[in-house]
Amino acid sequence: MTIEVGQIAPDFTLNDQDNNPVTLSGLQGKKVLIYFYPRASTPGCTIQACALRDTKAELDALNVVVLGISPDTPKKLTNFINKQELNFTLLADEDHATCEAYDVWQLKKFMGRENMGVVRTSFLVDENGNLEHIFNKFKTKDHHEVVLDYLNKN
């Protein structure tokens, strides 16, 4: 399945770090940055999350809600949030169904080994629930800048 700008974002309900369900369609009226990352508390994911944490005021001013999604358990997400003092919601996609719906659960090669995992990608959903932009060309350390740059120009 291909996911493209302009289509309605696949809806989902996932548990957050506190085991509370969060539904994408329940956030209509705001822009939602959904960012998929491989694993909580790993170096690249920590850099990416902390940069989003540090730009939250700018994102709030642009009416953007941040949702981080990974195949981690809610408990691992709670630990990640507490350790890094994250100020946005992380969602547990333990069966990776939402990752699959967004076509980010793919075969990856790392150090000569192949396994299925999350390809780091972010999706901007507009106020009406449509996919406005897909961010898939960035480094973990400048992800927040790429997102803010796009938001400020559009």
Score class of each variant (00 low, 15 high):
P21K: 02
E85N: 15
S70M: 01
L33R: 03
D95Y: 14
K153N: 11
F110I: 02
R120L: 04
S122I: 00
T98S: 12
L27G: 09
E4D: 10
Q7E: 14
F88C: 06
S25L: 13
K137W: 07
F80P: 00
N82K: 08
G68Y: 11
K30M: 01
A51M: 12
V125W: 07
E127D: 07
G68P: 02
V119G: 10
Y35G: 04
L124Q: 07
E85W: 00
K75C: 03
V22R: 05
E4Q: 14
K141S: 12
V65Y: 09
P38Q: 13
K141F: 13
N87F: 10
M116H: 10
V146H: 11
T89W: 13
K108P: 00
D142N: 14
T55H: 14
L107C: 00
N128R: 09
K83C: 00
L151D: 08
P38F: 04
A40R: 06
T140V: 15
Q48T: 07
G26A: 14
T42W: 02
A97F: 14
P74Y: 10
N115G: 07
L14A: 05
N154V: 12
L131R: 10
F36R: 06
F135T: 01
T73H: 13
G6K: 02
R120E: 03
L77V: 00
D18I: 00
F12W: 08
P74K: 07
D18T: 01
I8Q: 11
T2A: 15
S70W: 06
H143V: 02
A40M: 05
S122M: 04
N82P: 00
K56D: 06
Y37M: 10
T2N: 15
L90V: 04
K153E: 11
A97W: 11
K153G: 11
A49N: 00
F80E: 01
G112Q: 05
R39N: 05
T23K: 13
P10Y: 08
N130F: 15
F110H: 13
K31H: 11
